[in-house]
């Protein structure tokens, strides 16, 4: 015990702990500062320092304004729709492709794998992607973003590694019962590979929630915008027209800075809520999958 204590108080350990604490604070304080500003009285926000992580004059008015805004509400709904439906499509397509490709003696497997790897390394240009979506008459439709990135080759390869390890013996009984591939996939493979499937599900869901570039190009109208694009217009481009379109609010009584903070917090919350799961599954995926995300 004594030795342990001495070790703990060695100057080098204290310095190291302080440095690490500082690094962690650099990541936390700016976010907590925004949280504090979003919960503060709009009049007090401009006087708040960057390190202040407690609200000045606790007030929920900023969130009230945001959630009473039609544009924010629509954007939030659209983001949730694209993330949920899109991730569903992702999981369905990725698991069926990985399943089929890991069946023994599949004719043409090698050709398909080469095709997929070419798809992974050569990305189409953004202009042509725009034209394809236009030709499909999907411009300004949420479905463009649901379908875009339906499958990621990297995730297919990751899943294949797990599916390959599923023992053939387990399938024999089902095959004798006359179960088809669909039933084998859903009743045997999915339950056995819950962790890897959740992992790719998390990869997709986080990607979809955070996507803003293609959404800003494919979804042009305000009724089809998503949260990240709205946030970008509001925070990065400083466009406040969506918010000031509100009739009932006295513009002099609100603080744009606090509203920005509140919008950012709303955008982060789903990630924070899911953070324990995201960490658990991402970590397992990264460690089996190698170096790339």
């Amino acid at each position: 015990m004594k030795k342990k204590m001495r070790q703990f108080f060695r100057p080098s350990n204290i310095i190291l702990s302080l440095i690490m604490l500082l690094i962690a604070l650099t990541m936390l304080v700016p976010i907590l500062n925004l949280l504090a500003k979003s919960l503060s009285d709009p009049q007090a926000v401009s006087g708040m320092k960057g390190y202040q992580i407690w609200p000045s004059g606790l007030n929920l008015i900023n969130y009230e304004i945001i959630f009473n805004n039609q544009v924010v509400w629509t954007a939030l709904k659209n983001s949730v729709f694209i993330t949920v439906v899109g991730t569903g499509v992702n999981i369905l397509m990725t698991t069926s492709l990985a399943y089929a490709l890991t069946r023994p003696n599949l004719v043409g497997k090698k050709a398909i794998m080469i095709f997929l790897i070419i798809m992974m390394i050569f990305e189409p240009g953004i202009i042509q992607e725009y034209f394809v979506v236009k030709d499909l008459h999907l411009l300004d439709s949420l479905w463009s973003m649901v379908l875009y990135r339906s499958v990621s080759v990297y995730n297919v390869i990751l899943l294949m590694r797990f599916f390959q390890e599923t023992p053939e013996v387990l399938l024999e009984a089902a095959k004798i019962d006359g179960a088809g591939h669909m039933r084998i996939l859903f009743s045997i493979f999915l339950p056995l590979n819950k962790v890897p499937i959740m992992t790719v599900g998390m990869f997709y869901a986080v990607y979809r929630w955070n996507e803003f570039f293609h959404s800003s190009i494919f979804l042009s109208s305000r009724s089809n915008t998503v949260l990240q694009v709205f946030l970008r217009q509001f925070v990065v481009e400083g466009d406040t027209t969506a918010l000031s379109a509100l009739g009932s609010i006295d513009l002099s009584a609100i603080s744009m800075s606090a509203l920005r903070a509140a919008t950012i917090i709303v955008t982060i919350v789903p990630i924070l809520v899911l953070y324990p799961f995201i960490l658990k599954y991402y970590t397992s995926g990264v460690l089996t999958g190698g170096v790339k995300e």
Partner: peptide
């Protein structure tokens, strides 16, 4: 796990 839009907002 934060998007670059959010990070830009924070920064």
């Amino acid at each position: 796990f934060l998007s670059w839009v959010v990070i830009a907002g924070v920064w």
